[in-house]
Design a protein around this nucleic acid. Sequence first.
DNA 1: AATTTTGTTAATAAAAAATTTAACTTTTTG
DNA 2: CAAAAAGTTAAATTTTTTATTAACAAAATT
Lengths: 184, 184
Amino acid sequence: MTNHHEEGSRQTIEHAKGLVIDSIAETMDLYGVTRSAGTLYGTMYFEEDMTLDEMREKLGMSKPSMSTGVKKLQNYNIVKQTFRKGTRRQTFVAEKDFFKFFSNFFTKMWIREAKINLDTVKQAQKELNKLIEDSEVDEKIKHEAQQVYQQLEASIPYYHWLQKLVDSIESGEIFEFLPVDQEK
Amino acid sequence: MTNHHEEGSRQTIEHAKGLVIDSIAETMDLYGVTRSAGTLYGTMYFEEDMTLDEMREKLGMSKPSMSTGVKKLQNYNIVKQTFRKGTRRQTFVAEKDFFKFFSNFFTKMWIREAKINLDTVKQAQKELNKLIEDSEVDEKIKHEAQQVYQQLEASIPYYHWLQKLVDSIESGEIFEFLPVDQEK
DNA sequence: AATTTTGTTAATAAAAAATTTAACTTTTTG
DNA sequence: CAAAAAGTTAAATTTTTTATTAACAAAATT
């Protein structure tokens, strides 16, 4: 085996990884994560823990970009800080189990959706109730307010269901209903 | 009931709707849908079918913006074209059932994720296999290729599971496992 | 304590995305 | 079939986002 061949083989491996990294980044882009954060995650997916400088080297970008990128990924709960002995630099590691990725990423969004929207619906209903219970208010308006109130009321079970979905993912119960097929 | 009061009451209703529209737009923003498309959806959520000009009027934006916005929402499968008799203008209606919204929106993303990433993983594995099966290739490289191959292989069950999740949502089966609580 | 290393914040520059105006195409109706 | 209406596409502009350089702050080692 010559060095010439070895060089080409390394390139083949890097090419294969590159395909997957781009694909992951495209998917994350679909989910509203910026392309560069997605590429960073994809890169970390194939590495052990990395320092900011190692990321910068791999991606050819500036250190502040890596710093903010990693922070973003930490916010999505798909990258964690780790402790590598022998260096005083911070190191970070990507969540490599896609089931955990799914869980961390979507439950975070859904919890927030359920909370924010439910709070808002309650607040809007409170305001509508003022009209509905006010004897001074015109019947036509009252009826309109009631209709909107009802539409909002009908949305509430959805947010409760979303919370149940989150719970079943976090507890792992969902995998009893939808088992992971291990065979290829 | 005076007209003066009636004016204020209408404003109260609009204010309540506005709270909810903003909240919906914020959630959709979280999901990677632009703010203005989210606001358009939120607006349509409180209306029957709408023409482009009605949207433009409500949102105070240009008609081409409405045209592209509606197209985007149609792509997410959360807005459909309808036929209102008596007008030759196109009309559009928003999906108001959030369960269907959830289903349409997320299954579309997940189907795409599963397909694209699975295809890419297979392709990457094919390239890695060339190294693994090539007797000319250095053992060290071969080992590295095998490791990456294995990492990719381990991700495949996730994509199959995602497809199963999509199927159970589309068939409605998931609601047997996670029933919708009707009581408040 | 001083110096070096590391990471973050701030300001600027560059790039990307969204919005509008204007031109154009298609559809409808008289 | 001509005229008008409706919708889309294209080009240009504005706004927003992203990334970089440079300055700063914090931590650690000598």
